[in-house]
Design a protein around this nucleic acid. Structure first.
Length: 431
RNA sequence: GUCCCCAUCGUCUAGAGGCCUAGGACAUCGGGUUUUCAUCCCGAAAACACGGGUUCGAUUCCCGUUGGGGACGCCA
Protein backbone atom coordinates (compact mmCIF):
# COMPACT_ATOMS: atom_id res chain seq x y z
CA UNK A 1 0.00 0.00 0.00
CA UNK A 2 1.42 3.30 -1.07
CA UNK A 3 1.55 6.01 1.56
CA UNK A 4 2.55 9.56 0.63
CA UNK A 5 2.58 12.66 2.72
CA UNK A 6 2.68 16.43 2.59
CA UNK A 7 4.96 17.82 5.29
CA UNK A 8 4.75 21.62 5.26
CA UNK A 9 6.18 23.85 7.91
CA UNK A 10 3.39 26.26 8.69
CA UNK A 11 4.59 29.80 8.09
CA UNK A 12 1.31 31.55 7.49
CA UNK A 13 1.46 31.20 3.72
CA UNK A 14 1.35 28.22 1.42
CA UNK A 15 3.62 28.71 -1.56
CA UNK A 16 2.43 27.33 -4.90
CA UNK A 17 5.60 25.27 -5.19
CA UNK A 18 4.81 23.49 -1.95
CA UNK A 19 1.22 23.16 -2.95
CA UNK A 20 2.22 21.54 -6.21
CA UNK A 21 4.30 19.05 -4.25
CA UNK A 22 1.22 18.34 -2.14
CA UNK A 23 -0.88 17.90 -5.26
CA UNK A 24 1.59 15.45 -6.78
CA UNK A 25 1.66 13.46 -3.55
CA UNK A 26 -2.10 13.43 -3.48
CA UNK A 27 -2.47 12.44 -7.13
CA UNK A 28 0.14 9.74 -6.81
CA UNK A 29 -1.61 8.23 -3.82
CA UNK A 30 -5.04 8.49 -5.41
CA UNK A 31 -3.84 7.06 -8.70
CA UNK A 32 -2.40 4.02 -6.99
CA UNK A 33 -5.20 3.61 -4.51
CA UNK A 34 -2.84 4.49 -1.67
CA UNK A 35 -3.10 6.88 1.23
CA UNK A 36 -2.25 10.56 1.46
CA UNK A 37 -1.13 11.88 4.84
CA UNK A 38 -0.33 15.21 6.39
CA UNK A 39 2.38 16.13 8.83
CA UNK A 40 2.84 19.62 10.19
CA UNK A 41 6.51 20.33 10.66
CA UNK A 42 5.71 22.88 13.30
CA UNK A 43 8.82 22.75 15.42
CA UNK A 44 9.62 26.37 14.75
CA UNK A 45 7.58 27.72 17.63
CA UNK A 46 8.01 31.30 16.53
CA UNK A 47 6.22 30.97 13.23
CA UNK A 48 4.09 27.90 13.75
CA UNK A 49 1.11 29.62 15.23
CA UNK A 50 -2.37 28.08 15.23
CA UNK A 51 -3.30 30.54 12.50
CA UNK A 52 -0.37 29.44 10.37
CA UNK A 53 -1.43 25.83 10.76
CA UNK A 54 -4.96 26.76 9.81
CA UNK A 55 -3.67 28.44 6.65
CA UNK A 56 -2.27 25.13 5.50
CA UNK A 57 -5.48 23.30 6.34
CA UNK A 58 -7.55 25.91 4.51
CA UNK A 59 -5.40 25.76 1.41
CA UNK A 60 -5.62 21.98 1.27
CA UNK A 61 -9.32 22.06 1.86
CA UNK A 62 -9.84 24.65 -0.85
CA UNK A 63 -7.92 22.55 -3.35
CA UNK A 64 -9.69 19.41 -2.32
CA UNK A 65 -6.66 17.57 -0.97
CA UNK A 66 -8.30 15.27 1.50
CA UNK A 67 -6.11 13.28 3.87
CA UNK A 68 -6.63 9.71 4.99
CA UNK A 69 -5.30 9.73 8.52
CA UNK A 70 -5.19 12.16 11.41
CA UNK A 71 -2.50 14.77 10.78
CA UNK A 72 0.74 14.32 12.69
CA UNK A 73 2.16 17.33 14.48
CA UNK A 74 5.91 17.14 14.58
CA UNK A 75 6.14 19.31 17.66
CA UNK A 76 4.39 16.54 19.59
CA UNK A 77 6.84 13.87 18.52
CA UNK A 78 9.88 15.24 20.28
CA UNK A 79 10.21 12.26 22.62
CA UNK A 80 10.32 9.88 19.67
CA UNK A 81 12.96 11.98 17.95
CA UNK A 82 15.11 12.05 21.04
CA UNK A 83 14.64 8.32 21.62
CA UNK A 84 15.86 7.68 18.08
CA UNK A 85 18.91 9.81 18.79
CA UNK A 86 19.59 7.77 21.93
CA UNK A 87 19.38 4.59 19.90
CA UNK A 88 21.78 5.96 17.31
CA UNK A 89 24.15 6.95 20.10
CA UNK A 90 23.89 3.50 21.65
CA UNK A 91 24.47 1.80 18.32
CA UNK A 92 27.50 3.91 17.59
CA UNK A 93 25.90 5.71 14.67
CA UNK A 94 26.14 9.00 16.47
CA UNK A 95 28.43 10.74 18.91
CA UNK A 96 28.44 13.82 21.09
CA UNK A 97 30.43 16.84 20.16
CA UNK A 98 30.68 20.56 20.53
CA UNK A 99 31.91 21.05 17.02
CA UNK A 100 29.94 24.23 16.52
CA UNK A 101 31.69 25.61 19.54
CA UNK A 102 28.56 26.93 21.20
CA UNK A 103 30.04 26.32 24.61
CA UNK A 104 26.52 25.47 25.74
CA UNK A 105 27.06 21.76 25.89
CA UNK A 106 27.35 18.98 23.40
CA UNK A 107 25.20 18.24 20.38
CA UNK A 108 24.48 14.79 19.02
CA UNK A 109 26.19 14.30 15.70
CA UNK A 110 25.26 11.60 13.20
CA UNK A 111 28.12 9.62 11.73
CA UNK A 112 27.87 9.17 7.98
CA UNK A 113 28.74 5.64 6.88
CA UNK A 114 31.87 6.69 5.07
CA UNK A 115 30.98 5.05 1.80
CA UNK A 116 29.73 6.40 -1.51
CA UNK A 117 25.95 6.60 -1.65
CA UNK A 118 23.40 6.52 -4.41
CA UNK A 119 19.68 6.21 -4.87
CA UNK A 120 17.24 6.20 -7.73
CA UNK A 121 15.12 9.28 -7.80
CA UNK A 122 11.63 8.95 -9.20
CA UNK A 123 12.08 11.88 -11.55
CA UNK A 124 15.80 12.48 -11.76
CA UNK A 125 17.06 8.95 -12.12
CA UNK A 126 20.15 7.65 -10.35
CA UNK A 127 21.96 10.16 -8.16
CA UNK A 128 25.26 9.46 -6.50
CA UNK A 129 27.51 11.15 -4.03
CA UNK A 130 31.07 10.38 -3.10
CA UNK A 131 31.81 9.59 0.53
CA UNK A 132 34.22 12.50 0.79
CA UNK A 133 31.35 14.89 0.15
CA UNK A 134 29.13 13.43 2.82
CA UNK A 135 29.83 15.00 6.18
CA UNK A 136 28.58 14.08 9.61
CA UNK A 137 25.77 16.35 10.77
CA UNK A 138 24.01 17.42 13.93
CA UNK A 139 20.76 15.63 14.75
CA UNK A 140 20.18 17.02 18.24
CA UNK A 141 21.26 20.53 19.16
CA UNK A 142 23.18 21.31 22.27
CA UNK A 143 19.97 22.71 23.76
CA UNK A 144 18.46 19.26 23.36
CA UNK A 145 16.14 19.99 20.44
CA UNK A 146 15.99 17.63 17.46
CA UNK A 147 17.11 18.89 14.07
CA UNK A 148 14.98 18.72 10.92
CA UNK A 149 16.77 15.75 9.35
CA UNK A 150 16.23 13.54 12.39
CA UNK A 151 12.63 14.58 12.97
CA UNK A 152 11.74 14.27 9.33
CA UNK A 153 13.09 10.76 8.96
CA UNK A 154 11.83 9.48 12.30
CA UNK A 155 8.36 10.80 11.51
CA UNK A 156 8.32 9.36 8.02
CA UNK A 157 9.25 6.00 9.49
CA UNK A 158 6.53 6.39 12.09
CA UNK A 159 3.97 7.24 9.43
CA UNK A 160 5.21 4.40 7.25
CA UNK A 161 5.65 6.68 4.28
CA UNK A 162 6.56 4.64 1.23
CA UNK A 163 7.12 7.46 -1.25
CA UNK A 164 8.68 10.80 -0.43
CA UNK A 165 7.77 13.31 -3.12
CA UNK A 166 9.17 16.73 -2.32
CA UNK A 167 10.95 19.77 -3.72
CA UNK A 168 14.21 19.78 -5.55
CA UNK A 169 15.89 21.62 -2.71
CA UNK A 170 15.89 18.42 -0.69
CA UNK A 171 18.03 16.40 -3.09
CA UNK A 172 21.22 16.85 -1.11
CA UNK A 173 19.42 16.09 2.15
CA UNK A 174 18.33 12.77 0.77
CA UNK A 175 21.77 11.25 1.19
CA UNK A 176 21.69 12.12 4.86
CA UNK A 177 18.18 10.84 5.23
CA UNK A 178 19.09 7.61 3.49
CA UNK A 179 21.91 7.04 5.95
CA UNK A 180 19.54 7.76 8.82
CA UNK A 181 17.01 5.19 7.60
CA UNK A 182 19.72 2.60 7.36
CA UNK A 183 21.20 3.37 10.74
CA UNK A 184 17.74 3.20 12.26
CA UNK A 185 17.16 -0.13 10.59
CA UNK A 186 14.07 1.12 8.80
CA UNK A 187 12.94 0.31 5.26
CA UNK A 188 13.97 3.04 2.84
CA UNK A 189 11.15 4.79 0.96
CA UNK A 190 11.28 5.80 -2.68
CA UNK A 191 12.25 9.38 -3.31
CA UNK A 192 11.16 11.74 -6.06
CA UNK A 193 12.31 15.34 -6.31
CA UNK A 194 10.28 17.95 -8.10
CA UNK A 195 11.85 20.84 -9.98
CA UNK A 196 11.10 24.35 -8.83
CA UNK A 197 8.61 26.85 -10.09
CA UNK A 198 10.59 29.86 -11.25
CA UNK A 199 9.93 33.41 -12.40
CA UNK A 200 10.85 35.01 -15.71
CA UNK A 201 14.42 35.41 -14.49
CA UNK A 202 14.73 31.75 -13.64
CA UNK A 203 14.78 32.48 -9.94
CA UNK A 204 12.46 30.80 -7.46
CA UNK A 205 8.95 32.16 -7.94
CA UNK A 206 8.15 34.49 -5.06
CA UNK A 207 5.47 36.88 -4.01
CA UNK A 208 7.25 39.61 -5.90
CA UNK A 209 6.41 37.79 -9.12
CA UNK A 210 2.67 37.87 -8.58
CA UNK A 211 0.36 35.74 -6.52
CA UNK A 212 2.64 33.18 -4.94
CA UNK A 213 0.46 31.84 -2.17
CA UNK A 214 -2.61 29.71 -2.47
CA UNK A 215 -4.62 32.23 -0.48
CA UNK A 216 -3.89 34.93 -3.07
CA UNK A 217 -5.51 32.93 -5.83
CA UNK A 218 -8.56 32.28 -3.75
CA UNK A 219 -8.84 35.90 -2.68
CA UNK A 220 -8.68 37.08 -6.27
CA UNK A 221 -11.56 34.96 -7.43
CA UNK A 222 -9.69 32.22 -9.22
CA UNK A 223 -10.93 28.67 -9.25
CA UNK A 224 -9.35 25.95 -7.15
CA UNK A 225 -9.84 23.47 -9.98
CA UNK A 226 -8.03 25.79 -12.38
CA UNK A 227 -5.08 26.27 -10.06
CA UNK A 228 -4.98 22.56 -9.41
CA UNK A 229 -5.02 21.76 -13.12
CA UNK A 230 -2.48 24.42 -14.01
CA UNK A 231 -0.07 23.47 -11.24
CA UNK A 232 -0.19 19.82 -12.26
CA UNK A 233 0.64 20.81 -15.82
CA UNK A 234 3.59 22.86 -14.64
CA UNK A 235 6.10 20.06 -14.78
CA UNK A 236 3.93 17.20 -15.90
CA UNK A 237 2.09 16.25 -19.05
CA UNK A 238 -0.16 13.37 -19.94
CA UNK A 239 1.85 12.61 -23.05
CA UNK A 240 -1.03 13.43 -25.37
CA UNK A 241 -2.45 16.81 -26.29
CA UNK A 242 -4.78 17.18 -23.36
CA UNK A 243 -4.38 20.24 -21.15
CA UNK A 244 -7.72 20.86 -19.52
CA UNK A 245 -8.54 18.06 -17.14
CA UNK A 246 -11.16 17.21 -14.61
CA UNK A 247 -9.85 15.95 -11.33
CA UNK A 248 -10.90 12.40 -12.13
CA UNK A 249 -8.98 12.55 -15.39
CA UNK A 250 -5.89 13.76 -13.59
CA UNK A 251 -6.04 10.94 -11.06
CA UNK A 252 -6.38 8.52 -13.92
CA UNK A 253 -3.58 9.99 -16.02
CA UNK A 254 -1.00 11.02 -13.44
CA UNK A 255 2.32 9.28 -13.18
CA UNK A 256 5.58 10.35 -11.60
CA UNK A 257 7.74 9.23 -14.48
CA UNK A 258 6.18 11.82 -16.73
CA UNK A 259 7.27 14.62 -14.43
CA UNK A 260 9.68 17.07 -16.02
CA UNK A 261 13.17 17.28 -14.56
CA UNK A 262 13.74 20.93 -15.33
CA UNK A 263 12.28 24.00 -13.67
CA UNK A 264 9.08 25.55 -14.98
CA UNK A 265 8.01 29.14 -15.24
CA UNK A 266 4.61 30.20 -14.02
CA UNK A 267 2.77 31.73 -16.97
CA UNK A 268 0.10 34.05 -15.72
CA UNK A 269 -1.63 34.40 -19.07
CA UNK A 270 -1.98 30.70 -19.56
CA UNK A 271 -3.24 30.27 -16.05
CA UNK A 272 -5.96 32.86 -16.66
CA UNK A 273 -6.96 31.09 -19.83
CA UNK A 274 -7.23 27.87 -17.91
CA UNK A 275 -9.31 29.56 -15.24
CA UNK A 276 -11.74 30.64 -17.94
CA UNK A 277 -11.91 27.09 -19.26
CA UNK A 278 -12.84 25.72 -15.87
CA UNK A 279 -15.18 28.58 -15.12
CA UNK A 280 -17.24 27.99 -18.23
CA UNK A 281 -17.46 24.30 -17.46
CA UNK A 282 -19.10 24.99 -14.12
CA UNK A 283 -22.80 24.23 -13.66
CA UNK A 284 -25.31 27.06 -13.66
CA UNK A 285 -26.05 27.01 -9.96
CA UNK A 286 -22.40 27.71 -9.12
CA UNK A 287 -22.60 30.80 -11.28
CA UNK A 288 -25.84 31.82 -9.59
CA UNK A 289 -24.23 31.50 -6.18
CA UNK A 290 -21.27 33.62 -7.20
CA UNK A 291 -23.45 36.33 -8.67
CA UNK A 292 -25.65 36.57 -5.64
CA UNK A 293 -22.64 36.63 -3.40
CA UNK A 294 -20.96 39.40 -5.39
CA UNK A 295 -24.18 41.34 -5.98
CA UNK A 296 -26.87 40.76 -3.33
CA UNK A 297 -29.45 42.47 -5.52
CA UNK A 298 -29.05 39.68 -8.04
CA UNK A 299 -31.15 37.47 -5.81
CA UNK A 300 -34.32 39.42 -6.46
CA UNK A 301 -35.31 37.82 -9.75
CA UNK A 302 -34.12 34.30 -10.55
CA UNK A 303 -35.27 34.38 -14.16
CA UNK A 304 -33.57 37.71 -14.79
CA UNK A 305 -30.38 36.45 -13.14
CA UNK A 306 -30.31 33.43 -15.42
CA UNK A 307 -30.72 35.63 -18.46
CA UNK A 308 -27.82 37.78 -17.29
CA UNK A 309 -25.60 34.77 -16.67
CA UNK A 310 -26.32 33.41 -20.12
CA UNK A 311 -25.42 36.65 -21.80
CA UNK A 312 -22.33 37.22 -19.62
CA UNK A 313 -20.94 33.72 -19.45
CA UNK A 314 -18.33 34.07 -22.18
CA UNK A 315 -17.04 37.29 -20.71
CA UNK A 316 -16.41 36.42 -17.07
CA UNK A 317 -12.91 35.06 -16.57
CA UNK A 318 -12.85 34.96 -12.81
CA UNK A 319 -15.41 35.63 -10.13
CA UNK A 320 -13.92 38.99 -9.31
CA UNK A 321 -14.95 40.21 -12.75
CA UNK A 322 -18.62 39.98 -11.86
CA UNK A 323 -19.14 43.27 -10.00
CA UNK A 324 -17.42 45.45 -12.58
CA UNK A 325 -18.67 43.64 -15.66
CA UNK A 326 -22.20 42.71 -14.70
CA UNK A 327 -23.02 45.10 -11.89
CA UNK A 328 -25.07 47.43 -14.07
CA UNK A 329 -27.67 44.75 -14.70
CA UNK A 330 -28.74 44.92 -11.10
CA UNK A 331 -28.77 48.62 -10.29
CA UNK A 332 -29.91 51.74 -12.06
CA UNK A 333 -27.28 53.62 -10.15
CA UNK A 334 -24.29 52.45 -12.19
CA UNK A 335 -21.25 54.61 -12.78
CA UNK A 336 -20.42 56.05 -16.19
CA UNK A 337 -17.05 55.41 -17.75
CA UNK A 338 -15.73 58.90 -18.32
CA UNK A 339 -13.75 58.26 -21.46
CA UNK A 340 -16.69 56.46 -23.01
CA UNK A 341 -19.08 59.25 -22.13
CA UNK A 342 -16.80 61.77 -23.72
CA UNK A 343 -16.36 59.76 -26.84
CA UNK A 344 -19.93 58.61 -27.37
CA UNK A 345 -22.34 60.86 -25.56
CA UNK A 346 -20.73 64.27 -25.62
CA UNK A 347 -20.66 64.15 -29.33
CA UNK A 348 -22.68 66.46 -31.54
CA UNK A 349 -26.25 65.21 -31.78
CA UNK A 350 -25.75 62.09 -29.75
CA UNK A 351 -28.31 62.97 -27.13
CA UNK A 352 -30.87 63.94 -29.75
CA UNK A 353 -30.46 60.62 -31.43
CA UNK A 354 -30.82 58.96 -28.08
CA UNK A 355 -34.07 60.80 -27.46
CA UNK A 356 -35.41 59.75 -30.83
CA UNK A 357 -34.50 56.15 -30.20
CA UNK A 358 -36.10 56.31 -26.82
CA UNK A 359 -39.38 57.33 -28.42
CA UNK A 360 -39.04 54.63 -31.04
CA UNK A 361 -38.47 52.01 -28.38
CA UNK A 362 -41.37 53.28 -26.32
CA UNK A 363 -43.62 52.91 -29.34
CA UNK A 364 -42.60 49.36 -30.25
CA UNK A 365 -45.46 46.91 -29.93
CA UNK A 366 -43.03 44.27 -28.85
CA UNK A 367 -39.56 44.80 -27.38
CA UNK A 368 -36.93 42.13 -27.99
CA UNK A 369 -33.49 41.75 -29.51
CA UNK A 370 -34.82 41.67 -33.07
CA UNK A 371 -37.23 44.56 -32.83
CA UNK A 372 -34.74 46.66 -30.89
CA UNK A 373 -32.18 46.18 -33.62
CA UNK A 374 -34.68 46.79 -36.37
CA UNK A 375 -35.91 50.00 -34.82
CA UNK A 376 -32.38 51.26 -34.27
CA UNK A 377 -31.31 50.60 -37.83
CA UNK A 378 -34.43 52.17 -39.20
CA UNK A 379 -33.87 55.29 -37.15
CA UNK A 380 -30.25 55.46 -38.25
CA UNK A 381 -31.36 55.35 -41.84
CA UNK A 382 -33.98 58.05 -41.36
CA UNK A 383 -31.47 60.32 -39.72
CA UNK A 384 -28.75 59.51 -42.23
CA UNK A 385 -26.28 58.31 -39.59
CA UNK A 386 -24.36 55.08 -39.14
CA UNK A 387 -25.92 52.48 -36.87
CA UNK A 388 -22.76 52.74 -34.79
CA UNK A 389 -23.64 56.36 -33.99
CA UNK A 390 -26.63 54.98 -32.12
CA UNK A 391 -25.30 51.66 -30.92
CA UNK A 392 -22.44 53.07 -28.91
CA UNK A 393 -24.38 55.83 -27.15
CA UNK A 394 -27.12 53.42 -26.19
CA UNK A 395 -24.62 51.00 -24.74
CA UNK A 396 -23.08 53.70 -22.58
CA UNK A 397 -26.49 55.03 -21.67
CA UNK A 398 -27.88 51.76 -20.35
CA UNK A 399 -24.73 50.20 -18.88
CA UNK A 400 -22.24 53.00 -18.32
CA UNK A 401 -19.37 50.99 -19.81
CA UNK A 402 -18.08 50.55 -23.35
CA UNK A 403 -17.83 46.79 -23.24
CA UNK A 404 -20.32 44.04 -22.58
CA UNK A 405 -22.60 41.59 -24.33
CA UNK A 406 -23.79 42.22 -27.85
CA UNK A 407 -26.00 45.27 -27.56
CA UNK A 408 -29.38 43.98 -28.63
CA UNK A 409 -29.20 40.88 -26.48
CA UNK A 410 -28.21 43.08 -23.61
CA UNK A 411 -31.18 45.37 -24.23
CA UNK A 412 -33.51 42.41 -24.41
CA UNK A 413 -32.24 41.06 -21.11
CA UNK A 414 -32.54 44.44 -19.42
CA UNK A 415 -36.08 44.81 -20.75
CA UNK A 416 -37.84 47.83 -22.07
CA UNK A 417 -38.58 49.44 -18.71
CA UNK A 418 -35.00 49.56 -17.57
CA UNK A 419 -33.78 50.60 -20.99
CA UNK A 420 -36.16 53.55 -21.24
CA UNK A 421 -35.54 54.63 -17.68
CA UNK A 422 -31.81 54.55 -18.18
CA UNK A 423 -31.85 56.30 -21.51
CA UNK A 424 -33.88 59.07 -20.01
CA UNK A 425 -31.71 59.36 -16.96
CA UNK A 426 -28.63 59.48 -19.13
CA UNK A 427 -30.00 62.27 -21.28
CA UNK A 428 -30.88 64.30 -18.23
CA UNK A 429 -27.48 63.69 -16.72
CA UNK A 430 -25.48 64.84 -19.70
CA UNK A 431 -27.67 67.47 -21.37
C1' G B 1 34.80 28.00 -4.04
C1' U B 2 33.01 22.61 -3.55
C1' C B 3 29.16 19.19 -4.74
C1' C B 4 24.61 18.05 -7.35
C1' C B 5 20.97 18.89 -11.07
C1' C B 6 19.01 20.97 -15.63
C1' A B 7 19.00 22.57 -21.13
C1' U B 8 13.06 21.61 -27.70
C1' C B 9 9.17 27.83 -30.24
C1' G B 10 8.65 34.05 -25.74
C1' U B 11 6.16 30.35 -21.95
C1' C B 12 4.28 25.17 -20.56
C1' U B 13 5.35 20.93 -23.20
C1' A B 14 5.16 16.19 -27.13
C1' G B 15 9.30 13.68 -28.80
C1' A B 16 12.43 7.65 -25.58
C1' G B 17 17.90 6.77 -33.26
C1' G B 18 14.92 6.95 -38.87
C1' C B 19 7.30 8.18 -38.21
C1' C B 20 10.48 15.33 -37.41
C1' U B 21 10.47 19.54 -43.85
C1' A B 22 10.01 18.78 -34.87
C1' G B 23 3.48 18.18 -32.91
C1' G B 24 0.01 20.65 -29.23
C1' A B 25 -1.38 24.62 -25.74
C1' C B 26 -0.88 29.81 -23.84
C1' A B 27 0.92 34.39 -25.54
C1' U B 28 1.94 37.28 -30.26
C1' C B 29 0.54 38.78 -35.34
C1' G B 30 -3.13 38.55 -39.57
C1' G B 31 -8.25 37.30 -41.10
C1' G B 32 -13.50 36.00 -40.03
C1' U B 33 -17.80 36.29 -36.43
C1' U B 34 -19.54 40.12 -32.79
C1' U B 35 -20.80 47.38 -35.67
C1' U B 36 -18.19 47.29 -28.38
C1' C B 37 -15.35 44.03 -25.27
C1' A B 38 -14.85 38.96 -24.46
C1' U B 39 -15.70 34.23 -26.56
C1' C B 40 -15.41 31.40 -30.89
C1' C B 41 -13.40 29.92 -35.90
C1' C B 42 -9.37 30.13 -39.63
C1' G B 43 -4.31 31.28 -40.73
C1' A B 44 0.91 32.95 -39.83
C1' A B 45 5.43 33.67 -37.45
C1' A B 46 8.17 31.09 -33.69
C1' A B 47 12.57 26.09 -30.93
C1' C B 48 16.09 21.06 -30.84
C1' A B 49 22.27 26.28 -26.60
C1' C B 50 27.34 25.16 -28.83
C1' G B 51 31.37 21.69 -30.14
C1' G B 52 33.02 16.91 -30.54
C1' G B 53 32.11 11.83 -30.86
C1' U B 54 28.98 6.76 -31.47
C1' U B 55 25.97 5.31 -35.77
C1' C B 56 24.25 4.08 -42.39
C1' G B 57 21.38 7.87 -39.68
C1' A B 58 20.94 11.95 -34.24
C1' U B 59 16.29 16.49 -31.02
C1' U B 60 16.80 11.58 -29.16
C1' C B 61 23.02 7.94 -26.80
C1' C B 62 28.27 9.51 -24.79
C1' C B 63 31.95 13.42 -23.64
C1' G B 64 33.17 18.46 -23.29
C1' U B 65 31.91 23.82 -23.41
C1' U B 66 28.54 27.51 -22.30
C1' G B 67 24.34 29.05 -19.79
C1' G B 68 20.81 28.41 -15.74
C1' G B 69 19.34 26.48 -11.02
C1' G B 70 19.95 24.09 -6.29
C1' A B 71 22.66 22.49 -1.89
C1' C B 72 26.73 23.38 1.13
C1' G B 73 23.33 25.79 9.37
C1' C B 74 23.34 23.32 16.31
C1' C B 75 16.81 26.67 9.67
C1' A B 76 12.97 23.76 7.83
Amino acid sequence: MIRTRFAPSPTGHVHIGNMRAAIYNWLYARHHGGLFLLRMEDTDRERSTPEAVQTVLDAMDWLGLDTDETPVYQSQRREAHLAAAEQLLADGHAYKSDKGGTGRGEAVVFRMPGSDMSFTDGVKGTLTKKAEHLQDFVIVRSDGSPVFHLANVVDDIHMQVTDVIRGDDHVENTFRHLALYQALGAPVPKFAHLPMIVNAQGKPYSKRDGAAFVGDFRANGYLAEALFNYLVLLGWSAGDDREVFTRAELIEAFSLDRVQSSAAQFDWKKFEWMNGEHLRALPRDVHRAQYTQAIPAAQADAEYLDAVITVMEERIKRWDDIPAMAGFFFTDDYAYDEAAVQKRLQKEGALDLLAALESAYAALPDFNAETAEQALRQLAEERGVKPADLIHPVRIAVSGIPQGPSLFHMLAVLGRDRVLTRMQRTRETFC
